[in-house]
Design a protein around this nucleic acid. Structure first.
Lengths: 221, 221
DNA sequence: ACGAATATAGAATCTAGATTCGATGTGTCT
DNA sequence: AGACACATCGAATCTAGATTCTATATTCGT
């Protein structure tokens, strides 16, 4: 630690953190693109215009960098989801918002999320469990909402909340690996369509008729 | 080629192919487990109880092995899907069968499929395109069926066939990465549930009502 | 301007892992 | 039995990539 004045220490720490962020960000970017094992520390350094050995000033090992990236990748998710959970609204609406906030993360921190989704399995046991705990929290939230829907009658009674949750997550997480062209279609629109699909399906009789004044008007521009 | 008697040649060739299959199978297994870049040729050899250098008798490079695995991973898909497409039935029913046959592949050749889904991106451009062509065929088939549903009126007119196709595929392909516990639930059941979800959604009024009433009474939370 | 801590460079190390090559074993046909 | 093609081994090569260490440059508070 610095032995300087408190303010000095603070200023320094901020700078340090900022640079550290850049480094982790660069790692995230390369991990996302080439996969963890396909990434060389050299490639990360290149992104930063830095000597490869200097990276080790910021993280103790490539593996540690991966864990950090994964951790940040989940944090956003969890916070966003928890915010939604605190709201008071019908389960299906909540589910819609959960999907939207989940997909929103893909726009906010695409690299981190992609690494979390595709590469977390390469973490050593200990950290994988740590990260897994967080991702299970998201799963549980979605499942809870679905179950609440079943209990309150808005969701078909026979539904399997767990499988449905996995289906929804699978569908959403796939987006991060879509080709640019497809992901390009604005995330909000995708979220809306997904929510609609999950709620009412594709079948024609699945959606309520328009004259019923349902706030379920066609997708939108 | 052998200069021996035809029958001898045949017998030999069969044995060769069989062994080659084992080798590619072993590669598939390890690729699936550790990812392409995380896989060492040593690990593949271990599975076979063979010296690592001997592998090169069966494939010219690790990359070639990946391509072979990916190729086999798609072949199954395409064939199964094409068989379904040839049948004559309403689009939604076809979609259901497409989902089922897709998931069935996950049971038949899980390793190959997993590698195809997770690792094809590491193929060199040329082979990635080759493999991509096949996977796009599957995409097109699904999209076609959905479009047919829209045209024939069984699927909601506003639906976006392309996005819906991506959603369905994302949902299905996620299954291959589920934890054992979750994938354990018999594939047929999962397929049925997915089909139901895609067709009618989770909402209670989503399933074909017995009579024409669509009481979408908002559940009071 | 000075000194303490920080940030980066440079060179060196050390290992694992892909690929090559020649030798050897093994079964099969004539 | 002898020849031949196939299958595997063993050793060697060759390189890339992670990590370590030491030296230098930079920055900031005083």
């Amino acid at each position: 630690m610095t032995t300087h004045t408190p303010r000095a220490r603070l200023v320094h720490n901020i700078r340090v953190l900022r640079r550290a962020d850049e480094v982790i960000g660069a790692a995230a970017r390369v991990f996302a693109e080439r996969g963890y094992h396909g990434t060389t520390t050299q490639a990360i350094a290149d992104v930063l215009g830095m000597r490869q050995a200097s990276l080790y000033y910021y993280f103790p090992s490539k593996e540690a960098a991966l864990e950090e990236v994964c951790a940040r990748g989940t944090d956003g998710f969890v916070e966003a989801a928890e915010r939604v959970m605190r709201e008071d609204m019908p389960p299906l609406k909540k589910l819609e918002l959960l999907i939207a906030s989940h997909l929103a993360q893909f726009e906010t921190m695409p690299d981190y999320v992609r690494v979390f989704i595709n590469e977390r399995r390469y973490l050593p046991d200990a950290s994988r469990k740590r990260v897994g705990r967080k991702s299970r929290r998201i799963e549980r939230m979605i499942e809870e909402v679905i179950q609440a829907g079943i209990d309150s009658g808005s969701i078909r009674p026979g539904a399997d909340a767990h499988l449905a949750m996995l289906a929804v997550l699978g569908m959403c997480n796939a987006v991060i690996n879509w080709r640019e062209v497809d992901r390009g279609r604005d995330t909000r629109r995708i979220a809306a369509i997904f929510a609609q699909l999950v709620a009412n399906g594709l079948a024609r009789n699945g959606s309520p008729p328009k004259h019923r004044g349902q706030p379920k008007s066609e997708p939108m521009p």
